[in-house]
Design a protein around this nucleic acid. Sequence first.
DNA 1: GTCTATATCCAGATAGAC
DNA 2: GTCTATCTGGATATAGAC
Lengths: 220, 220
Amino acid sequence: MFVEDLEDTRAIRRNATRARILDAAWDLARRDGLAAITLREIARRVGMRAPSLYTYFPSKNAMYDAMYADAARELAETLAARPQAGDPRETLRSRMRLFTAFCVADPVRYQMIFERPVPGFAPAPESFQLTAAALAGTRADMQAVGVAGEPALDMFRALITGLVSLQVANDPGGDRWTRLQDDAVDMFFAHYAGGTRSAVQPAGETQGAAHDHQQPPASR
Amino acid sequence: MFVEDLEDTRAIRRNATRARILDAAWDLARRDGLAAITLREIARRVGMRAPSLYTYFPSKNAMYDAMYADAARELAETLAARPQAGDPRETLRSRMRLFTAFCVADPVRYQMIFERPVPGFAPAPESFQLTAAALAGTRADMQAVGVAGEPALDMFRALITGLVSLQVANDPGGDRWTRLQDDAVDMFFAHYAGGTRSAVQPAGETQGAAHDHQQPPASR
DNA sequence: GTCTATATCCAGATAGAC
DNA sequence: GTCTATCTGGATATAGAC
């Protein structure tokens, strides 16, 4: 028992230190970009020397993996908090708002999940699963609204991606694009759900996930 | 006269070598990513040693600048070739098709113009002007269609950006998103031009370029 | 667990011979 | 203009003392 307690304590301390290291890495990444962080600077910020980091992470890529997992977990938690509105359309809207807010709140975190900001680094498949789950949620919301078909989902993703992407790139900290999101959904509904709240088949294609060949790295 | 001829010849040869170096740099960037190219490898590909490159470019960043100028010039030329269709809507459509085709044809070139793929590098303002001109063309087309207001233009940009961005990231070489572009324009017109071809004021805002604070680096 | 010292490697850039 | 040789600095990672 005592031995186990000691081991638990040790594990807790160890995880706390890991978290401190990751926090420092995120800070540095927000300042210099994800690809530019160095072990020396991270170590300096937590009061260590670079080699000591290898006690907590076997490699720099392992640290990137942990950062990716951080980001993916936060995304999943954010979208899980979505309020289940009575109206399916409002549910979809609230999911979208949570998503855009999540993205613009931390552009570097956004890059980590949806771009490939570190040459030579690709997230582990396990971490990647978390991100795919978010897309599944959107698909479910979409079906609840009565919009079916992969093309419609792809179009919706493109709309949101474009808004976020331009927002982050051209007006960081502002809302020039994010404030268009409600209008974007109206536009989308008008085209893909016939404007009313009835369930209407979309323009182009059959239902179901025909060929969602989303790529493990760099997807959205 | 003879002296001038000699100088011309020399300048021509020099520019030809510069072009060879840039070609090698692009090839390498397409293989390894823009941030990962090295002077040594570029030199090797043109049959030189790394220091010799400094005869043609004063620094690595100067080479990136030349690459950016390449890409921006190609974009400008591509959009200049736009056929002036009789119908303004078709004109806008053809501009959009040229643009998306340009982007997916060379994702690395696309990154160079619209993202910030090299930490610490920002294009010179002169080169950046070329890119801004493309946006001005879209704005003109849009007014010709009868859609006014910056929000409408921002929405249109978001649509195109999203389609291209997802296409490049998730289905490179395919057309899963680019094939949605005509449908995207239909959806856009229906919402912002009243569905008909009449000139209608948009939903949100007043006309004119109120605050197009596009940032020199990393804009679209 | 953390340190110093170091191995190994590679980068961009410069000096100066030819 | 091109080369060799080198400078300067940075990186990730390992060995071994404490």
